[in-house]
Amino acid sequence: MVRIHPSILSADFVNLERDLERIRDADGVHVDVMDAHFVPNLTFGLPMVQRIAEVTELPIDVHLMIDDPDTWAPQYAIRGVESVTFHAEATNDGVALARELRARGTRAAIALKPGTAVDAVLEHLTEFDMVLVMTVEPGFGGQSFMADMMPKLVELRSRADEAGVELALQVDGGITADTLPIAAAAGADVFVAGSAVYGHDDVAARIAALRDAGSLEA
């Protein structure tokens, strides 16, 4: 099933509650937390996520682009947050962190930068509910889709299927109606889209168009 998670990085922060309402037809809302250390950009932290959870019924998909997720990630396992994603490059023990997140009642997800091989997670697929394959370098919106990341998705989907693991595969970066089918054909089923959603007047129509694109073969 194709799931569309619009990224609020492309929303109007001054009118964020309005822009959350505009994406009510989406499957979730993607919230990027950046600390200006793990990535060069700075966005917001836990207070913003808590407030978003108070004003939307959409499942919240938190993506932590931060140092020391082993300490901070469990704090994001709050009511309204469906999943917490931390980076393989930042954690000291991804398996232990994933278990802690699950124990706190949220789905555990691990993200891979473009330069990180899937070997980092292949031996522990049962420990994660989702793997995020970055299709841009993390930290900024508006970058071009990296099609050379598709073999990672193919490998992850193949190994998950072989092991009988129910694993969501998310892609984030450069997702449009043109690139989404490429990622879907490689095995992705959760798609983060920023300007491809918020860059249009009819947001509901764009979400529907992206879902339709996911049923197409690349």
Score class of each variant (00 low, 15 high):
residue 122 L to R: 05
residue 132 L to C: 11
residue 139 G to H: 09
residue 141 G to N: 06
residue 119 D to C: 02
residue 137 E to A: 06
residue 156 L to D: 04
residue 151 P to H: 08
residue 143 Q to W: 06
residue 149 M to E: 07
residue 148 D to V: 01
residue 154 V to W: 03
residue 143 Q to E: 12
residue 133 V to T: 08
residue 138 P to K: 04
residue 148 D to C: 00
residue 124 H to M: 03
residue 142 G to A: 09
residue 142 G to K: 08
residue 114 P to G: 11
residue 134 M to W: 12
residue 139 G to K: 10
residue 138 P to V: 12
residue 142 G to D: 08
residue 117 A to G: 14
residue 133 V to L: 09
residue 114 P to D: 11
residue 122 L to D: 04
residue 131 V to T: 10
residue 115 G to N: 14
residue 130 M to K: 03
residue 139 G to C: 12
residue 136 V to S: 09
residue 153 L to W: 04
residue 133 V to F: 06
residue 134 M to Y: 12
residue 125 L to V: 13
residue 138 P to E: 10
residue 117 A to C: 09
residue 129 D to V: 10
residue 126 T to F: 10
residue 136 V to T: 14
residue 131 V to C: 06
residue 123 E to Q: 12
residue 121 V to E: 05
residue 125 L to F: 14
residue 148 D to G: 03
residue 131 V to H: 02
residue 115 G to M: 06
residue 134 M to A: 10
residue 115 G to T: 13
residue 152 K to M: 04
residue 149 M to R: 12
residue 145 F to T: 00
residue 118 V to F: 04
residue 146 M to G: 02
residue 116 T to M: 06
residue 142 G to E: 10
residue 125 L to C: 13
residue 130 M to P: 01
residue 155 E to V: 15
residue 139 G to S: 11
residue 153 L to N: 07
residue 139 G to D: 11
residue 121 V to W: 04
residue 125 L to M: 14
residue 132 L to P: 03
residue 116 T to K: 01
residue 148 D to P: 00
residue 124 H to C: 05
residue 128 F to G: 03
residue 119 D to R: 07
residue 131 V to D: 01
residue 144 S to F: 06
residue 126 T to E: 15
residue 152 K to S: 07
residue 130 M to E: 15
residue 140 F to E: 07
residue 114 P to V: 09
residue 124 H to I: 08
residue 125 L to R: 11
residue 146 M to V: 02
residue 123 E to N: 15
residue 137 E to Q: 11
residue 129 D to F: 03
residue 150 M to W: 00
residue 118 V to R: 03
residue 115 G to F: 10
residue 116 T to E: 11
residue 150 M to K: 00
residue 154 V to R: 15
residue 150 M to D: 02
residue 151 P to M: 09
residue 152 K to R: 13
residue 156 L to Q: 03
residue 154 V to L: 08
residue 135 T to E: 12
residue 120 A to I: 01
residue 127 E to G: 05
residue 144 S to Q: 14
residue 118 V to I: 14
residue 114 P to A: 08
residue 147 A to H: 01
residue 125 L to G: 10
residue 133 V to A: 08
residue 125 L to H: 13
residue 130 M to N: 02
residue 127 E to R: 07
residue 122 L to C: 10
residue 144 S to P: 00
residue 130 M to R: 14
residue 126 T to W: 14
residue 134 M to D: 10
residue 126 T to I: 08
residue 140 F to P: 01
residue 154 V to N: 02
residue 120 A to W: 00
residue 119 D to T: 11
residue 146 M to W: 04
residue 132 L to Y: 07
residue 116 T to I: 13
residue 142 G to L: 12
residue 114 P to T: 13
residue 154 V to C: 05
residue 136 V to C: 12
residue 147 A to E: 06
residue 148 D to L: 02
residue 123 E to W: 13
residue 132 L to I: 12
residue 145 F to H: 01
residue 126 T to Q: 15
residue 115 G to A: 13
residue 141 G to D: 06
residue 153 L to E: 06
residue 146 M to D: 01
residue 139 G to T: 11
residue 154 V to Q: 13
residue 157 R to H: 06
residue 121 V to L: 09
residue 149 M to S: 07
residue 131 V to Y: 00
residue 129 D to S: 08
residue 129 D to Y: 05
residue 133 V to Q: 06
residue 155 E to C: 06
residue 125 L to K: 08
residue 114 P to C: 09
residue 128 F to M: 06
residue 130 M to H: 01
